[in-house]
Design a protein around this nucleic acid. Structure first.
Lengths: 150, 150
DNA sequence: AGGCTCAGGTCGATCGCGTCCACGTTCTGA
DNA sequence: TCAGAACGTGGACGCGATCGACCTGAGCCT
């Protein structure tokens, strides 16, 4: 991970569809060299993939909720995780320090669907309680921050 | 937004670097047709951009925190937002229902940097208090959910 | 019905890009 | 000093991106 790799990562974080030729121009290498470097970044797990960033409302996911989960004492964390993993509405799942073991970010189409999701969560083995906050608006999300050389 | 547009969005959410030719094969259209459709999805704000999904640890951002913000009564929300926007560590910002007006997702390199960020937040005009939870691990993040035809 | 218009598609051509390969350069360790 | 690895460049070639010309069907007006 030298400075050029970092530039490539930063460029691709900003626009994942840049051509290798364009990346090459930006970092001052040849296209094959960039191709190889990016390939190594992907193989090494630095770059996990490339995603289109889609307006959620446009695809019928207008409701965003953040849900804290308090775990049952004695409940198995892995089982709870497995259950969460099978709920596609849960876009992100963080294991947290604090009383609430997990924080989930969920996206659904309607409040009614959110209600169903919360019921399902509360019914899940290992879940003692949930606390849900609804996002009234998303000011920004997953904004890439400028990288500092490490 | 017909079924083909939805397929295109779903394909690009899974892999933003698919070529137009490949997209065309997947949806059963010609490459120029796909090119035009994707262009319209971008112009119409459905597709906001394309991002490389990068392992945060690999770029020196190993600490993830979720921070709830209680606003000062009388503080101007827009000013607070503006202040948040200028802190690059804040990757996501949701305006929430509830006592905590905002929920921020921040990413920093070290706990010391998190401490600095929290101090800065507490010093920000319009912020009455903060409540920070540290993510011990990220189980998954921004997982694209399968789209249902709407 | 007939014909106009428009949206949205295909096809063909051109040009640039992706990608493979052979080769040069630098660095390192034996 | 020399071998070899790592990493780069340049050339070649086939595929993809993209433009323009043309086709088709739906909707609408006369």
């Amino acid at each position: 991970m030298d400075a050029i790799d970092l530039s490539l990562v930063e460029l691709l974080r900003g626009n994942a569809r840049l051509s290798y030729a364009e990346l090459a121009r930006q970092v001052g290498l040849s296209a094959p060299a960039v191709h190889e470097r990016v390939g190594k970044l992907e193989a090494g797990g630095v770059i996990r993939g490339y995603r289109a960033d889609v307006e959620p409302e446009a695809i019928g996911l207008g409701v965003t909720a953040l849900i804290g989960i308090v775990q049952d004492s004695g409940g198995d964390t892995d089982d709870v995780l497995e259950a969460f993993r099978e709920m596609p509405e849960i876009e992100s799942c963080y294991f947290m320090a604090g009383v609430e073991s997990f924080l989930l970010k969920a996206r659904v189409g309607t409040i009614a669907e959110l209600e169903q999701l919360i019921l399902r969560l509360n019914r899940t083995a290992g879940v003692a309680s949930t606390r849900t906050g609804v996002a009234l608006s998303t000011k920004w999300e997953n904004r890439p921050q400028p990288l500092r050389p490490s």
